[in-house]
Design a protein around this nucleic acid. Structure first.
Lengths: 271, 271
DNA sequence: CCGAGTTTTGGCCTGCAAGGCATAAACTGG
DNA sequence: CCAGTTTATGCCTTGCAGGCCAAAACTCGG
């Protein structure tokens, strides 16, 4: 049966330990707030999202985004990382940024809950240990999902796609070192269309996003010319093509008014 | 005078009537939520933002963004429009979209308040009647501001600047009809650098954003060749340059996976 | 009525980034 | 050593952004 303790408790993710005792008069119409994470990774050549299977109503049996209620003294980004630590090792997260906040009055069947969604990216080389009730699903072919979480996954995909074309966000998808054909496969998975390795190499090199490591792939894989190994030069989000049009008239000197929207990631959170 | 009745009246400041009385056990850490609006307009050749002067602490005398507490059954976008109706006629808003949500635990001196900021745009031809306690300030030179509102204004400016170069968002800044030199002045104000009218015309025409009305300016203004009048073809946000790079390989047919982030604006809100 | 000044318009040209294509390079396996 | 496979490199085309200049169209003053 369903454990129905606390106020809006068993929202998705445990809120636990918040002293919202029963018996108290119903709270004034204050919305509670949750944070959710759209964690994406390239897995088996496809863009995958980390989902959590709900064991309790509402949406029992459906899938949902990992996340949970905002703690009393937490910042939003802080809270996502804490909640995520219960599902996946936070050190695996290469990038985290805010996506959108949804607050439709009826978005949560059990009361008013606002949700701020974040986009998290996991490099393709790590395979995080995840709990039994979570799984990776193809982001292009989602299982039945509860709440408005499917829309949030879509937001995340679109954000990622857009940023792949004008930022260095690829660093958060690719392993530390990679060949160009590997990278182009990752881009293909994320963008949903073919990406020629030749052109990708030219573009990312010119933009200064990637550089050669000097080494080549260990050789002896599949009978072809050994591929050079590349790496991303920065591991933090940078805008490398801002902006294609209506730019300031040939101003020498860098532009400083770009914003990346990234949330700093502390490597080891005291979770 | 300002009509100050209703629920979410006294805008963002005091938390007021939340029964967080002394003696009572401290409320469970439920944050309250407010919505704020960064309303921008080109005024006198400069990008201006609508601010509200606080009469009460905290930040008494400082300026703040219009907005206020989220109502019990309101959606977020809905709430901004309602709150904004107290400051400016909502019919003047040509565009509204969500900017960001801030939730630092200490962002509000009087308790935990999350805030979702929206970006609103007012065409240059209207001069909304605004209450006595509000005023337009140059967005590039803000007065002392309370809370984290200055950062939100900056987010709004950056968002606008970015979208000017890959969407048709100019429709929300420009009057219904305009000459190219007018429009280039508006772009200059918003972007912060010169924009050649010749080039702007070429770019916006090619992208199908604007079209000629056929008429010319009434003539007899300042002794020059009469300027042709243009208008934006759409009055809703469209992405016209998605994306400069890493696009799908010459796929005939339009792309449908673009998202604009716009909030539908109901012309007449039952405020 | 004509010429000077002003503003818009359109054409021409350049530069640059994206991306397709073909060929060369480098390796494996038989 | 040759065929097959994969990567790397150079060449070329295309398209857009944007600068520049001359022509067009008007006002105003003499």
């Amino acid at each position: 049966m369903v454990f129905m303790g606390g106020t809006g408790a068993d929202i998705d993710g445990d809120i636990g330990r918040i002293p919202a005792g029963p018996g108290v008069a119903p709270l004034p119409a204050m919305a509670s707030h949750e944070v959710l994470a759209v964690v994406l990774q390239i897995r088996a050549g496809r863009l995958a999202v980390l989902l959590w299977r709900r064991a309790l109503p509402p949406f029992e049996g459906a899938w949902a985004l990992p996340g949970g209620r905002l703690g009393p003294a937490e910042g939003l980004g802080e809270s996502v990382r804490r909640q995520l630590a219960q599902k996946v090792d936070v050190r695996d997260l290469a990038h985290l940024e805010q996506l959108e906040t949804r607050g439709a009055p009826d978005r949560h069947p059990q009361g008013r809950v606002l949700a701020t969604a974040y986009l998290g990216l996991v490099p393709a080389d790590v395979d995080p240990v995840i709990p039994a009730d979570t799984a990776w699903h193809p982001a292009a072919d989602l299982p039945p999902m509860g709440f408005d979480h499917a829309a949030m996954v879509d937001s995340g995909r679109r954000r990622l796609r857009a940023k792949l074309s004008y930022t260095n966000i690829g660093f958060a998808l690719a392993p530390p070192e990679f060949t160009m054909s590997e990278l182009s496969r990752h881009y293909r998975a994320a963008l949903g269309h073919d990406v020629a390795a030749t052109n990708l190499r030219r573009v990312l090199l010119r933009r200064g996003q990637i550089e050669e490591t000097g080494r080549s792939v260990p050789s002896g894989r599949s009978g072809g010319r050994p591929a050079a190994l590349f790496r991303f030069r920065a591991r933090r989000l940078e805008i490398t093509d801002a902006f294609a049009v209506l730019r300031p008239p040939a101003a020498p000197g860098g532009r400083d008014d770009v914003h990346t929207g990234a949330v700093p990631i502390s490597p080891a959170e005291p979770c």
